[in-house]
Design a protein around this nucleic acid. Structure first.
Length: 260
DNA sequence: ATGACTAATTCGATTAGA
């Protein structure tokens, strides 16, 4: 079961890029972030035509997440539990039924959190605390679970070309990194780090300042796996080439392959 | 020190992203 996470930075602007990608790469499950559209306006038919089931949790203008699945998709939940007053669409989960195993997939778009300090940073850290509670609940199942998306956290210095440029940024602040480690400490594994300890693996390059040409990137799109999912891990990789393609997002797809 | 890109909203200029 190939599961990709991809912050597409707007489905309106990226529909051709995304449909070409689905046709060429054929993920079994694609977890999308920043669809930036309400559910009713999502181009569902264009994607269903390619053989995908579509579950969205959208929002006008900003944020928004979606699960696209070639496999049966069951028990979809929209929104991160734990705060009824939260109106931002940043979480959707469902169960993809593989040939051998069912896998719970959670698609998340973690808040950016800039500027630091401020309300947005407090929201980011509160959101991460709330996510931890959801993960605690999910872990009780002892099933294969994949939590993937745009975490907006650079875990370590080896995950950023120019660490000094990011010292004061919400993506690299010690509190954000500690909150990410606290998620891992619940018993989750960063899929790419189960495969390689290589530095300079990036999933985002800013549109500005020639970041792509200079390879001035950061790794912020991750798959965290429960132990039961990690047992099934065959491979994990970053589709770096996508950043140089036609009308790219500023993020690229990040992949895992599970024996499921 | 600042702004630089891109997208969405809504058709000009602002907000947000990371």
């Amino acid at each position: 079961m190939k599961i990709a996470t991809y912050n597409i930075n707007g489905i309106r602007a990226r529909l051709e890029t995304v449909t070409a990608w689905l046709s060429e790469q054929s993920p079994d499950v694609a977890l999308l972030q920043e669809i930036k559209i309400v559910d009713e306006a999502f181009p569902r038919e264009e994607i269903e035509r390619l053989g995908y089931r579509v579950a969205t949790h959208g929002q006008k203008g900003f944020n928004g997440v979606a699960i696209l699945s070639r496999l049966p998709l069951e028990d979809v939940i929209r929104g991160l539990p734990g705060d009824e007053s939260d109106e931002q669409s940043r979480w959707i989960e469902g169960t993809a039924i593989g040939d051998r195993r069912a896998v719970r997939v959670c698609c998340l778009y973690l808040p950016n959190g800039n500027p630091v300090p401020g309300d947005k940073y407090a929201y980011k850290l509160a959101w991460m605390r709330r996510m931890r509670e959801r993960v605690r609940q999910l872990l009780r199942s002892e099933e294969p679970i994949v939590l993937a998306g745009d975490y907006n956290v650079i875990p370590e210095p080896r995950d950023v070309r120019r660490p000094d440029d990011w010292r004061e940024d919400a993506l690299f602040r010690p509190e954000s990194r500690a909150a990410f480690r606290r998620l891992e400490a619940l018993g989750l594994y960063d899929a790419i780090r189960l495969r390689t300890q290589a530095p300079n693996l990036y999933s985002f390059w800013d549109f500005q300042r020639g970041s792509w040409e200079r390879d001035n990137g950061i790794r912020i799109d991750h798959h965290l796996l429960t132990a039961q999912a990690a047992d099934l891990l065959r491979d994990a990789w970053i589709e770096r080439e996508a950043r140089g393609g036609a009308k790219p997002s500023d993020h690229v797809p990040v992949w895992i392959d599970l024996d499921a």
